[in-house]
Structure formats: C-alpha cells, structure tokens
Design a protein around this nucleic acid. Structure first.
Length: 606
DNA sequence: CGGGGTTGGG
C-alpha cells in the first residue's frame, strides 16, 4: 500500500503563507455537512495539497475525490500526490467493482495530465463502463506521453467501434493527438468524421495545421469556418495572430484583429498576448505597446511578451523599466522573464547590465539559471568580444554545451577575427555535425574577413565536395495584399527592370552621401570589383528598391529577411534612410533593425 | 468527469 498523505506540518510544497480564507478546519469546528465537504475541495483548488489534507481529515465522498483530482490536474500536476489520492480512494472502496465511471474518469484524467499513459491505461482497463468522457481522457494521456504511435491508432479504432468518433470532444482530442506527431492524414480523417459544426473542433483543426507547419492551410481552415457561420472564439484568434506574426503578415494581422474586435467581447489574456506578439513580430513595436497598455488583463506572459518585444526592437532600457513595473505590480517574474530581459541586454550589447542580472538571478529573483540563461550570457560575452571569458563560462556551467551554442561562439569569432579559437570550434563542429552549412559559412567568413581569400575558397570547395548547400537568402516586403519576395540577383519580379534602375539610382545617391561598399561581406568571389558587384544586388537591397518605388515617399517600409542581415546591406540601409527620409524596419532571423535618418537602432551592434 | 490558444526562437 502506498504511503498515506504527509502530516499537516509545513513542508517544501506548502511552506508559503496561507492566503486568508483558505479552507482549513479549526479544531473546534463542527464537522462539515456533505455539501460542504464537496465544496471545500473545489474552493481550494489553488493548493491541492492542503485541500487533500482537509479532505482526508474529514469524511470524503466520491464526488469530493473527483473534484480534488480535477484541481490537482490543472495546476502543475504531481504524480505522487495523485497516486496517494488514488490509494486513499481505493482504501475507501470507491474504485471497486461497482459503477464509478465519474471518479474513475477523474483518476484517469489525472494520470493523463501527468503524462503517465501507462497508469492511465491501467485505470482505463479496469473500468466497468466507459463513455465519451472516459475515452477523451485516455486520448489526452496518449499524446505527449510518447506512446502515440502504438496506442493512438488502437484507441482511435476502439473509439470508432463504440461510435463515439462523431463526438466533438473526442474528435478534438483525436485531432490534437494526431497533430502532435505530424500525422496530418489521420487528422483529416478524424476531422471529416466528426460533427464539424462544433467550434472547438475547428479550433483544434487550425492548431493541428499550425503544429504541422501548414500555416496557409490553417488560414484556409479559418475561412472555411467562417463560411460555415461558426463564430470563432478567443482560442482561434490567438492561433491566427501567432501565424500572422510568425509570417510577418501585417495586413492580414490587422484584418484578423479587426475581425476579433467584432466577434469577441470578453477579454482574454492569451488572445491579447498573442495580438501583442503579432504586432511586434510584424515590426510594429508601437502597436504592440498600445495593445499592452490597453490590456486590463495583464499576466506574467503579457510582461514576458512585451519585454521580449522591446529587446528585439533594441529598447533595453524600456525592457528593464517594464521589468521593474512588473515586480511593482506584484507579479512574480519567471525564468522566461529573466531570459527575455537578459536577451534584451544581449541584443544591445549591455554586457555589464546583463552580467549583473545573471549573477543576481538566484539571490534576488529566486530563479536558478537554466541552460538557456547560460547560453544567452555566453552569447553576450562572445559577441561583445570576450571570447575567452565565454569559453570559460562554457566550461564552468553545469550543462553540456549544445552545437547551436558552439555555433554562436563561432559566429562571434568570425565577427572579432579570432581565427585560432574559430578554427578549433569549427573543427569540433565539423565532427559533430558535418552537414550543417552554417559552420562552413562562418569559418569561410572568418577567413574572408582576415583577407585570407584562398582559405575561404578552400572552405567553400569543401562544402561543395560534401554536397552541402547553405540556405538561399531571400527578403520580402508586403505591399497591400501582396507579398513580394526577392532572392539574390533576382530578376523574376514583373517590374524587375524598374527595380534595378531604382537601386542603381539609390546606390548612386548613397555613394554621394558617403556610403562605401564593404567587400568583406562578399565571400563568393576573389577579385575585388567582382566582389563589389556581388554585393550590389543582395536581396534586402532589391526589396528596399522595390518598396521605395511602390509606396508613397515618407512611408515606413517593413522588410523581412530569412537570414541575418549582411553588414554591407546594414550600412547601405542607414544611407537609404538618410537619402530617402524614410523609416525602415528590417526584421532578420534574429531581431529588428529600425533605420532612421542615417542611423540604426542597434547602434551597429548585432 | 471531457476537447482547442499566447511568451522563450532553431
């Protein structure tokens, strides 16, 4: 028999001061009525452990057990607490042979939320009767539990046999179960069989497409849903905002925002947070601020999202100020908060502030640095030129460095021309992941920056010999309803000739203003004038030349690039903003650059 | 007793 619940003395999980009004029976109190016994457990769902003590101290009903399991499932479930409760219920004979579908389902659901599919399965097998809810709980235990392939299909077959595949609750669960493993074909089968007039099934279908990286299909599903006259709820809008943000579809994002204002009256933190992030991801930090400030449901994630956004948009001071405001408002920062603030300092090269925060994390904020925090600080040290210090930190940290972290340091070596350390790391990386193109490109860049063109060429030919190809660079810009995409030297655009003419004109005027092409960034050619030529038609320059042509002068241009912006283009953009008087927001794969009046918000540190 | 969403960016 498993141990019974711990005695009601303070323990690690329950040492926090008890909030006023929490249900703790006083010694001289009358025993609670049956009604009260049910209510006690549900009202103290914020503290399952203390609720559990209350329950066991009194005379619990099966119904009370159910409520307790429910409470325990929602807030970071603890498997040990669950199994103890389970044992208590067994002792009382509540899970005997009789009809106890409701309590059994509650137990089942508890194990499911703890990701204990085996235990869940055992409870399920012992149940005398099963209904849609039971099946649903079992399915929930399957995805995320890691045994989906083996069990998922079998469960699905059983569900079909019992005729419950029409049930929208079960359908929604099955959809997300299959989506978790990327089994889109199975998702579609479930979706077609289920009663699709249910809004949640549509919602889970949209999420399924997002999980499987089919963003367009997700949007299409949204349209189909509207055509069926189904009113979207907050869940759907948060998914859509996430899509629009990740794809930088500002126009679409604004439309979905307007749509949500018409359809959603009650506020919802998750939806608003997604909206905030959408505007930030589309380069509109001001709109993100507006959403944040007009939001009266502000939670930790709201602050985290806004601090992240400010960091990405090169506003570390504002991020730090918001962090203070967050603590002042009584919200407790979590590890993501600290990570986002650290990364805000990192983006801006505020090494001193970053190190100070990192060193005081545990003592002042009570948060133990995770691997991510270390990686951020190591990135910060390396990029600011403290490569030795960053190597030391890697050795000292209580985690094993992953290849992505080594790659960051390699990038820093390239930036600071540390060829020795760079070579060492590159060799190690070639061993660990011989087919990762970035490693070759970074090492090639180190050689190129030091003018060692022969060695740079060697790295390139090695890449070719191994059949490795880097990602093609491309940039895109939204104009009204259309997205215009440009590759390097791309001439496929319908008005390509005009674009090239405009770019030549622009380059002429920025050269007159003092722009000098930085040929260090042209690694594809060894002769100097060929190198300059190869820089001239980089995709981000083409995108700007097009945007400048296609929009009224003075408009802000928002341009995206799939890779990190090249140094020469960064310099050219500063001059572009000077000679055209435009504001330019450039999003690369890492952060945002705001160009205005000849300068960039990143202060040339990136 | 039940289903769907948001932050950390690779």
């Amino acid at each position: 028999m498993p141990p019974i619940l711990p005695p009601p003395t303070p323990c690690a999980a329950d040492s926090t001061p008890r909030p006023a009004g929490d249900a703790v029976p006083h010694r001289n109190q009358k025993p609670p009525t049956h009604r009260q016994r049910c209510r006690i457990t549900t009202s103290s769902s914020s503290s399952p452990l203390s609720a559990a003590r209350v329950l066991i101290a009194n005379d619990p009903t099966p119904r009370a057990f159910s409520a307790l399991f429910k409470a325990a499932s929602s807030s970071s479930p603890s498997p040990s607490l669950g199994s103890q409760l389970h044992a208590q219920a067994v002792v009382r004979g509540f899970l005997g042979d009789g009809d106890n579908t409701i309590l059994s389902t509650a137990v089942l659901n508890f194990y499911a939320s703890c990701r204990e599919p085996d235990l869940a399965r055992r409870v399920f097998d012992r149940m005398a009767r099963r209904n849609a809810v039971t099946w649903n709980a079992l399915i929930k235990g399957n995805h995320g539990g890691g045994c989906v392939q083996e069990l998922g299909g079998a469960v699905h077959a059983q569900v079909v046999k019992s005729g419950l595949d029409k049930d929208p609750f079960v359908g929604a669960s099955l959809v997300s179960m299959y989506a978790a493993t990327g089994a889109l074909e199975d998702v579609k089968v479930v979706f077609d069989d289920v009663d699709t007039l249910d809004p949640v099934v549509w919602s889970s279908m949209i999420s399924a497409y997002i999980n499987c990286k089919e963003e367009e299909a997700a949007l299409l599903t949204f349209y189909k849903m509207l055509c069926q006259d189904i009113k979207p709820r907050q869940f759907v809008y948060s998914s859509l905002f996430a899509i629009c943000g990740s794809m930088s579809m500002l126009e679409m994002g604004r439309q979905v925002h307007a749509h949500s204002l018409k359809n959603i009256t009650d506020k919802d933190a998750a939806m608003t947070n997604a909206l905030l992030t959408m505007y930030s991801d589309c380069g509109c930090i001001d709109d993100a601020w507006r959403v944040f400030e007009s939001n009266d449901i502000v939670d930790v994630i709201s602050y985290n999202s806004m601090i992240l956004a400010l960091g990405q948009h090169a506003q570390p001071k504002e991020a730090a100020e918001l962090f203070r405001q967050m603590k002042f408002s009584g919200l407790i920062p979590d590890e993501v908060t600290l990570l986002n603030l650290l990364s805000a300092f990192n983006h801006a090269g505020l090494v001193h502030e970053g190190l100070h925060l990192f060193d005081s994390m545990l003592d002042i904020e009570g948060i133990k640095p995770t691997y991510q925090h270390y990686a951020c600080v190591i990135d910060m040290l390396a990029r600011s030129g403290e490569i030795e210090e960053s190597m030391k930190t890697i050795k000292e940290m209580p985690f094993e460095a992953e290849t992505s972290l080594w790659r960051i340091v390699l990038g820093a070596c390239s930036k600071h021309g540390d060829i020795e350390t760079g070579m060492k790391i590159a060799e190690m990386l070639f061993e660990m992941e011989p087919y990762e193109p970035t490693n070759y490109i970074l090492l090639g860049n180190i050689c190129a920056r030091l003018g060692r063109w022969v060695e740079a060429e060697k790295v390139r030919s090695l890449m070719e010999k191994r059949g490795i190809d880097g990602d093609d660079a491309f940039s895109w810009i939204e104009m009204g309803q259309t997205t215009h995409k440009f590759g390097v030297d791309d001439r496929s655009h319908p008005i390509s000739e005009e674009i090239y003419r405009n770019l030549d004109r622009l380059i002429g005027s920025i050269k007159a203003a003092g722009y000098v092409p930085d040929t260090n960034f042209a690694t594809h050619s060894t002769e100097k004038d060929r190198r300059e030529e190869s820089l001239r038609y980089h995709c981000e320059k083409l995108a700007f030349a097009f945007g400048d042509l296609a929009s009224p002068s003075g408009d802000t241009l928002r341009i995206m690039k799939n890779l990190r912006v090249c140094g020469d283009c960064h310099s050219a953009y500063k001059y572009f903003s000077l000679v055209t008087g435009r504001k330019i927001v450039l999003r690369d794969n890492h952060r945002f650059h705001h160009f205005y009046n000849g300068a960039c918000s990143c202060g040339d540190y990136w």
